[in-house]
Structures are given as C-alpha cells and as structure tokens.
C-alpha cells in the first residue's frame, strides 16, 4: 500500500517534469521561430490584432473603473490623514506598479489566452497541425510563433493603456467629483512616481506576463488531448494556470524590482 502510494507520487512527479520539459521545448521552438516572423510580418499583425486590438475595449473599460475605484477609496483613506493631495501618487503608483500589469494579464489570459488554447487545441483535434506537418510546414513556427510574439507585443501596450486610462479615471473622480486640487494631484504624482523604477519596471513586468500568459495558453492547446473534452479541460487549465503564474510571478518580480 505504502509502496503503491509512493509509486503513484513518483509517477505524477515524473509526468509533471515531462510536461515541463515539453513546455520548455515548445518555448525554445517558438523563440527560434523569430526568423519566420521577420519573413512574414503579416502573420504577426493578424495575431496582434487578435490579442491586442480585440482586447482594447475590455482593457479600457476595466482600467477606467479600476482607476475610479482607486480614486474613491484612496480619497476616503487619505482624507482621514489630511493627505488628500497625495491621491494622485496613490492612484498612479498602484496602477503603474501593480494593477496595470497584473489586471491586464488576468484579463488577457481570460479573453485571449483561453481563445488561443481552444484554437490550437481544435486545430490539433481536427488534424490541421498534423496536416501542416505533412505539408512539410512546422506548425510551431507557422501557427504558434506568431501568436506568441503577438501576445508579447500586445501585453505591455495593453497594460500601458490600462494604467493611463486608470489614472484619468482617478483624476475624474478625485479632481472632478471630490474636489482634490488638480495642480497638486499631478505635481505630487510626478514627484513621487519615478520613470525608471515605476514605469519601466511596470513595462518589464507586463512583458514578462505577456510571455507567460501566451506561453501557457499555447502550450495547453498544443499539449491538449485532441478531443472535445480534452480541449475544454485545456482551456480551463490555461486560464487557471496563467492566473496563478501571473500572481506568483508578480510577487517575485515585485520583490526583485522594488525590494532594493
């Protein structure tokens, strides 16, 4: 009994290691496919469209509301200490450092990541990937690589849009509705938010999230069991794994970047 349990533990451990290995091989394959992107920029444009342009609406609306909530909540807390002028700092710093990259990554994982997984999984289930292989076309380079780089490009831009719209939302609530002084809103923000430490790090964060979210989505699709049940499970796993990875990595990156 004990040995059986041990064997089962060992087997699942080995299985996980094997999956991890396959995922890294896939990543290496996609990175090596970068030449393909340069030869056919049209493929990349189509994927930036799918992942980026089609996510703009949800990112813009969410950013606006998150910024407005930050403005409202921040005002009530800061006003107790007579520091309502710092509202701009609070809204901007939390958006640029954390909420922008993280919430954008979660939204993209839900909207575009799941779609990528389902698309790749169905292409596998309907033998389109094998069909490409039989036409002597590498599906990793032709189908997966453009999607990977599309996600990598789209994510930081979406995160920047989220933060920018969020700051404007915070401005609207704080200055427009609650009467914080417009001048100090901006000047405090500018004196405390640092370009290198906050903005650049935020962009780096969201680029990392872009890699992770699209990588997980594509791997889950590529590794899915080619049946309708397998694809549906892979889609669920894609979103769950991507969300966990983003939150976990966010902690690690924050510790590395802002920990001094």
């Amino acid at each position: 009994m004990l040995l059986d349990g041990l064997a089962r533990l060992g087997r699942s451990g080995l299985g996980a290691l094997e999956r991890l290995g396959r995922a890294h091989l896939l990543l290496a394959g996609m990175l090596l496919g970068v030449g393909e992107i340069l030869r056919r920029p049209g493929l990349l444009a189509a994927q930036v469209f799918n992942i980026g342009v089609l996510s703009m609406l949800i990112i813009g609306v969410s950013g606006l509301f998150v910024g407005m909530v930050l403005g409202l909540q921040g005002y009530y807390v800061l006003a107790q200490f007579g520091a309502a002028e710092s509202l701009g700092v609070m809204v901007a710093a939390s958006l640029v450092r954390e909420l922008g990259p993280v919430v954008t990554a979660l939204l993209v994982a839900g909207r575009a990541g799941s779609a990528l997984t389902a698309e790749i999984g169905l292409m596998k289930a309907t033998e389109q990937l094998s069909g490409l292989e039989m036409m002597a076309v590498d599906p990793v380079r032709r189908i997966l690589t453009p999607r990977f780089f599309g996600g990598l490009i789209a994510m930081p831009l979406l995160a920047a849009m989220f933060s920018a719209v969020g700051v404007l939302g915070g401005y609207f609530v704080g200055v427009g509705l609650l009467g914080v002084d417009s001048g100090s809103f901006w000047s405090q923000m500018q004196s405390k938010v640092d370009f290198h430490e906050d903005i650049v790090n935020g962009v780096v964060k969201s680029a990392v999230f872009g890699v992770v979210v699209t990588w997980i989505a594509l791997f889950q699709g590529h590794d899915s069991v080619p049946t309708s049940e397998g694809v549906s499970r892979a889609t669920t796993r894609s979103v769950v794994h991507a969300a966990l990875a983003v939150l976990g990595l966010d902690f690690v990156l924050t510790a590395l970047m802002f920990g001094d």
């Binding site: 309907t126 033998e127 389109q128 094998s130 069909g131 292989e133 039989m134 036409m135 002597a136 076309v137």
Partner: peptide, 26 residues
Amino acid sequence: RRRMGMLFQSGALLTDLNVFDNVAYP
C-alpha cells in the same frame, strides 16, 4: 515529406482559409 501527400480522416483543411488558399498553401 514534400514528396508525400497525406489525406487525413477529417480532411484537416485550415479552417481560416478558403478552398483556393488551402490548395495553394503548400
């Protein structure tokens, strides 16, 4: 593989291309 053709059970046509482009693909 360029010297081999294969006909899959499902046809395995690329669903985002029309008939002409599918045949033109290889």
